[in-house]
Design a protein around this nucleic acid. Structure first.
Lengths: 245, 245
DNA sequence: TTGAAATAATAGCATTACTATCAAATTAAA
DNA sequence: TTTAATTTGATAGTAATGCTATTATTTCAA
C-alpha cells in the first residue's frame, strides 16, 4: 500500500480513514458493532488482530480459538474476550478490513479514469491481484489476510444469525464495495438489470476460483497453479464484458 | 421426482442407482468413503439422514450435534457415530446426495434435447428451480435439503482437510455435475477456455443469489422475494449466454 | 438355538466457548 | 504526586461439544 502514502488524505473522509498523528500506516475505522473495544486503540488489540490473521491462516477458522491466540501473543483468553465478543465477530472484523482496503485500492487506482469500461477492467485486475499488495506499511499481513478471506469469508455470513448481524450493520463494508462496483456497471450499461448480482458474483468467483485452482482443480480451468491469476482474470473479464455487451 | 418413476432404469448404471426390489423410491449410492455404515441399509440409518436434514435446516449446521439428532429420533449418540465418522461427513453426504439428484434431473430433462443451447437453458431452469421438486416419493425432504445446500454446502469443502477429503473422493458428485454441464458449454462453444469455471460459478451463483435475496438483498437485484427465482434465472442466462456469444 | 450383528444405556474425557473474580500494573486526573 | 480509574493478567469455573469405550440388551439369520 506504499502507493497511498502521499495521496490517501483525499479519500480520508469517505473511507472513515483516520490519519494517525505520526502517520506510518493506514488506519481503517470499521463499524463499532464489530468489537467490544476497538482493537486499534491498544498495543494488545493490534497484536490480537495481526496475530489472529496469521493463526487463522495457519490452522483454519474452526481450529482457531482465543486460548491458542492468547498463548501465541502471551496474553490470556479473558483479555482477548474484552475486545471481541467471540471469534465469529473477529472473523467479520478481519473480512471487513479486507473489503475496506479493497474498496480503497479500487478508488485510488480508478479515480482519475474516466471511461467506465476501463475502470471495470482495472477493478477486475485489482480483484485478482488482491493478494499481492505490499504488506510492509500495513499493520496486517495482507497476503495472509487474503488467504483467510478466500478460505473463511463465506463463514462470516453463512450462520444462523445473518439477519441479526445484518441488522447490526456487520456486513456494511461488503455492501459498500458491491454498491460501488455496481455503480460502474450501471455506468457502462444503465439498462442492465442485475448489476449487484453481477458484482457479488464476480467478487465471489474471484476468490472461489482461486480456491478451486489450489484445492479442487477440476472445478476450474487452470493447468498450472501459477497461471491461476491470469486465468481467473480472463474468466472474470469474459463474464463481465460478456454480460455488458 | 415422480417423473422418474417409469424411466429411471435407463440411467441406472451411470448414476449408481439401485433399483430396490419393491421400487417405491429412488436410491442413490454415494461414495463409500462418505460413511462408516451405509445409512440407506437400515431403518435407523434412513431416519438419521432424513431427520438430520430437517434438524440442520432448523438450527443450522454449527448448532447441529449428533446428540440433538439422537434425541430427536430417539436413538443415542453412539449409535449415530456408527454411521458417520462425524457431522462433517454427514454434511458432505447430504450435499452429495443433492448434487447426485440434480445431475439426475438434468440428464432426465435434457437427454432428448439435441440443441446444446436449449440444453443449457433447461439446465439453468432446473438449477434455479431445484427447491421445488416433489418430495413425496423421495426419502428426503428435498426442499429442506436445498435450503441446507444453500446455507451449508460451502462448509463441506472450506475446511483444513479439503485436500485429504478430496483425495478420498468426497467431492466426486459435485465434480461430476460440473463436468457434465461443462461438456454442454463446450458443445456450444468449443473454443471457450473456461467451461468448468463458468459452470462452478453458475452453480454457486444460483445458490448464493438466493441466499442474498433472502438475507442480504442489497447484494442482489430482486425487489420482492417471490420474484427471486425468475430474477436469478434471468441473471444466470445473461451470464451464461453472454459469455458464449 | 445359537451366535453374530446392531442398538441402547451409560459413562467418561479432553476441548471449546465462554464468564467471573480478584489482584497487579498502567494511565489519566486532581 | 497521590488518587482514582482503567486495563491487563492469573486463575477458576461451567455448560456444551465432539467424541470413545464398555457393557447390556435386542434382533435376526443360519
Amino acid at each position: 500500500m506504499l502507493l497511498f502514502q502521499n495521496s490517501y488524505p483525499i479519500f480520508a473522509a469517505e473511507f472513515n480513514l483516520t490519519v494517525p498523528p505520526m502517520a506510518t500506516s493506514l488506519r481503517i475505522d470499521l463499524n463499532e458493532k464489530l468489537y467490544l473495544r476497538d482493537p486499534q486503540d491498544t498495543e494488545l488489540g493490534r497484536r490480537l488482530v495481526a496475530e489472529s490473521v496469521m493463526l487463522i491462516d495457519e490452522i483454519g477458522f474452526e481450529q482457531f480459538t482465543f486460548k491458542k491466540l492468547a498463548q501465541r501473543i502471551e496474553s490470556t483468553e479473558a483479555s482477548l474476550y474484552r475486545y471481541f465478543e467471540n471469534k465469529h465477530r473477529l472473523l467479520v472484523y478481519l473480512v471487513s478490513w479486507h473489503w475496506a482496503t479493497l474498496r480503497f485500492q479500487i478508488r485510488f487506482h480508478t479515480h482519475n479514469v474516466a471511461d467506465p469500461r476501463q475502470r471495470l477492467q482495472l477493478i477486475l485486475e485489482i480483484l485478482t491481484r488482491a493478494h499481492y499488495d505490499d504488506p510492509s506499511t500495513v499493520p496486517l499481513d495482507e497476503a495472509a489476510l487474503y488467504r483467510v478471506v478466500v478460505n473463511e469469508a463465506s463463514k462470516s455470513y453463512l450462520t444462523r444469525d445473518v439477519d441479526e448481524d445484518n441488522r447490526a450493520g456487520l456486513f456494511r463494508e461488503y455492501k459498500r464495495l458491491v454498491a460501488e462496483v455496481a455503480a460502474v456497471i450501471s455506468q457502462i450499461r444503465p439498462e442492465y438489470p442485475y448489476p449487484h448480482a453481477l458484482v457479488s458474483t464476480l467478487l465471489e468467483a474471484a476468490r472461489k476460483q482461486l480456491f478451486y485452482a489450489q484445492h479442487l482443480p477440476s472445478l476450474t480451468d487452470t493447468k498450472n497453479r501459477t497461471a491461476a491469476e491470469t486465468d481467473i482474470l480472463g474468466f472474470l473479464q469474459g463474464v463481465a464484458f460478456g454480460v455488458l455487451s
